[in-house]
Nucleic acid binder design. Structure first.
Length: 728
DNA sequence: ACATCCCGCCAAGAC
DNA sequence: GTCTTGGCGGGATGT
């Protein structure tokens, strides 16, 4: 893991690793908060960040006690250090030496240094003092410390579609250390992930990693709930209202626009009572719930674009908090946090909506849209119950599949209901971390949207141009046109680039391959990609009425290909049984592969996103190669049983069904399939396209047209992204 | 000036 | 009381 690198550096000096540990541990020992403080104590200036000492990690490495929540303290203590030692350390902190050390740490913090990834494998390398200087140089910019980036790193550690067999346990401490951040940050990430059931809390300090297997299901449920909540109407209402005036007091809005306002439901939903959660207390209004609601808004939205303020207003209302401005601001802050995580999951991307008033920040859903597979499993949710119920439900299901539950004693922490869920969800697995082994690739993996974007910008622009040429035709209207009320939003600027990466496939592959030593990483030259993309586009677009052309990224293309009615990406998905055009099919994949291959050589810090994407591509090809049977596809697409059990069970099922020997392979295949099915769509394009087809609403909305245009200028900007275009 | 959102204080809760 | 969680919002950074 990246951590290693840091460690190494830290170790730089003759320090024995042990010593380092001890020291660091001592530091670490202090709880994050405390620790932080300490760190601050010294000259904050440059250092700020690195509360945590990586070195330990290394040493301990991830695997360490996965199950039992290990406290840093404990670790420390393992070391010769005593608590007093910590004090000493603190004291010493004042000394320059210590400062340096910390600085070094800071430098090494994985987050900042993406390159570190493989460090783990490396043993401690002693480095010169340079680190300090470097540190100063490097002083991580704020962006480098962003939650989104952090989340990507976090995600990179785990396979998107873990095999059923591997139960990954996430130790918050570990992760915090390895990522070089305070635990508090990890909570932010984990809470959002938990809201989507990508992880579940197993015990104190312990989370179980589920991956995206159940994501479709979860989304489906959320969508359902969102519908029940009538979020769409609320949004429409708000938007309208905004036009009129800014206030978002909920009393007003509801009445006006939509009488039927289901506020009560919402309210209920939001906090009051989850059956599961005993006390709604703060937990219930937590980030988790906000996250789910936020996602619901997207799923319900026809436009798939939601502005932060609208989301904030809706959330505020639900919470019933007083509408005061401060609340609003706070909500928005939280939404940014959530959005960052969702962005790194490639579920949404940032865009800007131009209204009469001006440009507003917004997010567009680029995740899977069709969770067509119906499940009965669903939670019968009364809205109120929703989240928790779901969890439980899922959990139960899973449990059934696997009875393992919690053997760990650790459950105690959770509320009864929660406990159940959590237990269910997370199995006391032995911690397998692929990451460990993979150290190197960990970083690469996930979807690094942000990074990716930047990198891509150039290419994207080009593409954008191309797309434009293609014309409005290519630039599609957003099929999903908003509700009439939404007219406000008429203009959306979206960056073409979608960076949607599917961590999924990659991860999976990695998991698989990773063991093999395969790192899917590939660096594709942007140019090559672009060219490929463009070539592909036409074909893809051709049939569809409305197409959102994601100009920029290959990724997008791929996605479209796969999903799209068109091409055959299907092989992966299994969908494309009927390969649309042989040529297309073949071409696309091949192209991708090529690209991927090309890239491989280069890996750089900034690149991770690219890499990941590339991998993804690779993955898809792989999957193709693997050739799953259509059957798999079907399964995924229609989780007859229920997507729910999905995670492990599905895999298991497959495995079982298939030759045991082949299990692995099958597992992989399945994983891929999943990935494809779920994520194949991930690209916004796909979604859009589908929507266009599907949405009836579209017609209405047809009035409004959204052009997605790439901003020509974008390149330079860090966020190339979208420029608003006014089409309507 | 405004958009983003990091940072970490500090309280609620779980032991 | 200690430790884990995580709400919250000040204020820094980015644009």
């Amino acid at each position: 893991m990246e951590v290693n690198c840091l460690t190494l550096k830290d170790l730089i000096n003759p320090r024995q690793p042990r010593l380092n540990f001890a020291i660091e541990d001592g530091e670490n020992a202090q709880k994050e908060n405390i620790f932080v403080d300490l760190s601050r104590m010294p000259p904050k200036t440059p250092i700020k960040n690195e509360p945590i000492d990586l070195s330990k990690q290394k040493i301990f490495t991830p695997e360490r006690n996965p199950i039992t929540p290990v406290k840093l303290v404990d670790r420390q203590q393992a070391e010769p250090w005593t608590p007093t030692a910590n004090l000493k350390m603190l004291i010493s902190a004042a000394s320059p030496d210590i400062r340096d050390r910390e600085k070094k740490k800071g430098l090494f913090r994985p987050i900042e240094n993406k390159d570190n990834a493989f460090a783990d494998s490396l043993q401690f390398v002693i480095v010169g003092n340079s680190p300090v200087e470097e540190f100063e140089k490097q002083r991580p910019s704020r962006k480098q410390k962003s939650l989104g980036l952090l989340c990507q790193k976090f995600l990179a550690r785990y396979p998107s579609y873990p095999l059923s067999t591997e139960k990954t346990t996430i130790s918050l401490d570990e992760v915090a250390v390895s990522l070089g951040v305070e635990r508090r940050r990890i909570y932010d990430i984990v809470n959002v992930l938990e809201s989507l059931h990508l992880v579940s809390r197993v015990a104190k300090n312990q989370y179980g990693w589920h991956g995206r297997h159940s994501l479709p299901k979860t989304l489906r449920n959320l969508q359902r709930l969102g519908e029940e909540q009538k979020y769409e109407e609320q949004m429409a209402y708000l938007q309208q209202k905004e036009l009129d005036l800014m206030d978002y007091k909920f009393g007003e809005r509801k009445r006006d626009g939509y009488p039927e306002s289901q506020d009560p439901q919402l309210l209920d939903f939001s906090e009051p009572d989850y059956p599961s959660s005993s006390a709604n207390s703060r937990k219930d209004k937590s980030l988790r719930i906000m996250s789910q609601k936020f996602v619901m808004l997207f799923l319900v939205s026809k436009t798939k674009i939601i502005t932060l303020d609208v989301a904030a207003k809706i959330l505020i209302e639900e919470s019933q908090d007083t509408p005061d401005h401060s609340k609003f601001k706070t909500k928005v802050r939280r939404l940014y946090d959530i959005a960052n995580v969702l962005t790194s999951l490639a579920l949404i991307k940032k865009v800007h909506v131009t209204e009469e008033r001006g440009r507003k920040p917004a997010f567009k859903w680029i995740g899977p849209v069709d969770f067509s597979s119906s499940d009965e499993e669903l939670v019968d949710v009364s809205a109120s119950v929703l989240p928790e119920l779901k969890r439980e439900t899922y959990g139960k299901i899973q449990v059934c599949a696997k009875q393992k539950l919690a053997r760990h004693g650790s459950f105690n922490t959770v509320h009864a209901s929660e406990r159940i869920q959590r237990k269910v969800n997370s199995e006391p697995s032995s911690p397998y971390r692929e990451e460990q082994g993979s150290g190197g690739y960990s970083l690469e993996i996930g979807s690094l949207a942000a990074v990716y974007r930047q990198k891509i910008e150039d290419s994207s622009q080009k593409k954008a141009l191309a797309s434009k040429r293609v014309g409005p035709s290519s630039s599609s209207l957003d099929p999903s046109v908003p509700f009439p009320a939404l007219s406000v939003d008429s203009e959306y600027c979206v960056n073409p680039l979608a960076y949607p990466v599917f961590p999924v496939t990659q991860t999976d592959l990695q998991a698989f391959s990773g063991q093999n030593g395969l790192n899917g990483q590939v660096n594709v030259s942007l140019t090559s990609v672009a060219s490929a993309v463009e070539s592909l586009k036409p074909a893809l677009l051709a049939g569809q009425p409305l197409v959102y052309v994601p100009s920029p990224s290959l990724f997008m293309l791929c996605g479209s290909l796969q999903e799209g009615p068109s091409p055959g990406s299907g092989s992966e998905d299994g969908r494309s049984l009927e390969a649309p055009t042989a040529a297309e099919l073949s071409s696309a994949p091949l192209a991708q592969k090529r690209l991927c291959e090309e890239r491989k050589p280069e890996e750089e810090e900034g690149e991770p996103a690219m890499k990941r994407q590339n991998r993804e591509y690779e993955d898809s090809p792989l999957s193709l190669v693997m050739a799953k049977k259509p059957s798999d596809y079907t399964d995924f697409s229609c989780p007859k049983t229920l997507g729910g059990r999905a995670l492990m069970p599905l895999e298991d099922t497959h495995g079982n069904g298939q030759l045991p020997a082949a299990k692995e392979a099958s597992g992989k295949a399945t994983a891929n399939c999943f990935a494809a099915s779920e994520w194949g769509n991930p690209s916004g394009n796909t979604d859009v396209e589908k929507h266009s087809e599907e949405n009836e609403s579209t017609k209405e909305s047809s009035l409004l047209q959204y052009l997605y245009v790439q901003s020509p200028a974008v390149t330079s900007s860090s966020d190339p992204q979208e420029h608003p275009v006014h089409t309507a």
